[in-house]
Amino acid sequence: MRLNTHRLVFLSLLIALGTSLHLVEMLLPLPLPLPGVKLGLANIVTLLALYLYGFRDGVTVALLRVFLGSLLGGTFLSPAFLLGICGAVVSTAAMALLLRHTKCFSTIGISMVGAVSHNIGQILAASLLLQSRAVLYYLPVLLLTGIPTGVFTGYILKSLMEHIEKSGALKGFTQQEN
C-alpha cells in the first residue's frame, strides 16, 4: 500500500518533469538548420523511471510525457506528436532491453542508445507517415547527432542518480527490481 502510493507520487513527479523538459526543448533553438535534432532531455526522466520501476512504468512515463508535452505545447495529434510517440516507444523499449538483460553498459551508454533509438524510431515513423524512403537519407545525420546528445543526457542522469543516493531523498520510494 505504502509502496503503491509512493510509486504513484513519484511517477507523477517524473511525468511532470518530463513534460516540462519536453516543453523546454521546444523552445531551444538549434544553431544548425537540422530539423528533428533535439537535446533529448526528457529521456533522462524516462531512463530514471526505468531504473527505479521497470519497463511498464517506464513506458507509462514516456508515453504520458509525450502526450502531456504535446498537449501543452500545441502539437497534440500533429505529425510531431506521432513521431514523438513512436520514438519514445522504441527508445524506451531499447533502453529497457539493455537494462534488463545486460550488465555491462552504464547509464551513459544506455542513454546514448536511448537517444539514437529515439531518432531511429522517429525516422521510421516519418517514412511511414510520408510513404517515402527519402526520409531515410536523413538517418546518418540523426544517428551522428544522437550519439553526443545521448552521452550528454547520460552524464546528467549519472550525476542526478549519484545525488539522489547521497541525499537519501528517495529512501522510501525505490522498490526492488522484479
Partner: peptide, 27 residues
C-alpha cells in the same frame, strides 16, 4: 538500489559507441 548500476562509462559503452559510429559512417 540505484547505485548498484554502473554509472561511469564502461568498456561496453565504448564498444557501443564505436559500433554506432561505424554503423552511421557506413550508412
Amino acid at each position: 538500489s540505484l547505485l548498484k548500476h554502473h554509472t561511469d562509462m564502461t568498456r561496453g559503452d565504448k564498444y557501443l559507441l564505436l559500433l554506432l559510429l561505424s554503423v552511421s559512417f557506413s550508412l
